[in-house]
Simulated scan of single mutants.
Amino acid sequence: MASEQDVRARLQRAGQEHLLRFWAELAPEPRAALLAELALLEPEALREHCRRAAEACARPHGPPPDLAARLRPLPPERVGRASRSDPETRRRWEEEGTS
């Protein structure tokens, strides 16, 4: 298992040393579990992940502006077939779906 110093150094390289902010408040078992989890992280990959997450968070929320212009409802002939079917056909479909 990696030592506390090793994990602290790796987190510092990743710019994530704040993850051990409450280290002194943890009991030995939670400390060991946290060290085991953090030891699996690669500093460069963690730094890149956090950078991308921060960029994503800074982007405006919602669909891209051009998406709304491209979305159109489906034409009626493409939807609602079951509701326009005759009662006998709907009954057969209902039986098929529940057997």
Rank of each mutant, 00 (worst) to 15 (best):
A54N: 00
P75N: 03
E88C: 01
L67G: 03
R52F: 12
C57A: 15
P60C: 09
R47Y: 05
V7M: 04
H18A: 15
M1E: 13
A68I: 10
T98V: 11
G15Y: 09
R81Y: 04
P65H: 02
P76L: 03
C57Q: 13
S85V: 00
A82H: 08
E37K: 13
L19I: 10
E95V: 00
R10D: 11
T89K: 04
R91C: 11
G62R: 02
P75L: 05
E95Y: 06
R47N: 06
H18P: 02
L38M: 04
G62Y: 05
R90I: 13
E4R: 07
W23H: 07
E55C: 05
M1H: 12
T89G: 00
T98E: 01
R10Y: 07
R91Q: 14
R78V: 00
R47P: 07
A9Q: 13
A33R: 15
R78G: 00
R72Q: 15
R51M: 06
E44L: 14
A33M: 10
E42R: 11
G62A: 05
R10I: 01
P73F: 00
V7A: 03
R81T: 02
E96M: 08
L71I: 15
L74W: 02
A27W: 05
P87C: 09
V79P: 00
A9K: 08
E44T: 15
A33L: 15
A2C: 12
T89I: 04
P65G: 04
E48Y: 08
A45I: 13
F22P: 02
A68D: 12
A56T: 11
L19Q: 12
A56R: 09
A82I: 03
R51Y: 15
R13G: 00
L41M: 05
R92N: 01
T89P: 04
E25F: 10
E37Q: 12
R72K: 14
A56F: 14
L46H: 12
A53Q: 13
R72W: 04
E25T: 09
G15T: 08
E29Y: 01
L67P: 02
M1V: 12
A36K: 14
R92K: 07
R72H: 10
